[in-house]
Design a protein around this nucleic acid. Sequence first.
DNA 1: CTGTATCCAGACGGATACTG
DNA 2: CAGTATCCGTCTGGATACAG
Lengths: 111, 111
Amino acid sequence: MTAHTPGPWADPVTGVCPVAETLRLLGGKHGPTLLHCLTGGEMHFLELSRALGGISRKVLTEQLRVFEAEGLISRTPKQDARRRVAYALTPRGQALGAIIAQLYDWSTQPA
Amino acid sequence: MTAHTPGPWADPVTGVCPVAETLRLLGGKHGPTLLHCLTGGEMHFLELSRALGGISRKVLTEQLRVFEAEGLISRTPKQDARRRVAYALTPRGQALGAIIAQLYDWSTQPA
DNA sequence: CTGTATCCAGACGGATACTG
DNA sequence: CAGTATCCGTCTGGATACAG
């Protein structure tokens, strides 16, 4: 065939590439790092804030809300004196995190 | 340990998360789709332009240049009458594309 | 066909101050 | 500790016209 056969990168209904959509789920500048952070286990708001370096609390909050709405993370307020809130990956979030982790290996391979 | 043990998401030297860096390599709005498109084989500029739907030639050109500089794709001008230019994934680009393809499977799994 | 050159609107994210 | 509310600069990407 002279004409190129397109791969499955466009949804027949929405016309949107699922891969691009998934990448969008990962969020903006800090989304991927945030998700990858939580791969190591649950973390509190301030821990995440510090781990992500120069992220503003506003953006962090927004991203957490989005991930929560997407079912990637869970939010559980601890009832201790410090009123901390723990964030952790859901099974679905972990599955995505596993794929993301492969990007780590890829990035360390020789060109 | 009460304190959370950070995962390998921050480079000890640059302080940058390699995963986030890799995700950045994928480019902006159309980068991932573009890469995924080329998974099916080499394509010409106009083919890509159409496959990506509403992408401007300016942005497409920019993204192609970036990918080329990153060693993810190759640019080979054909010397035919139509002066077309073929773009294809390099081995490194294909390796990345393989990982990206997993995102497709993930996105189709039940929540 | 394959770009390049401007211009511009909107999204994104940082800084800061304030609240429960 | 964990947010929320504003303000505002920057960066991205779209539209359009022009060029090799």
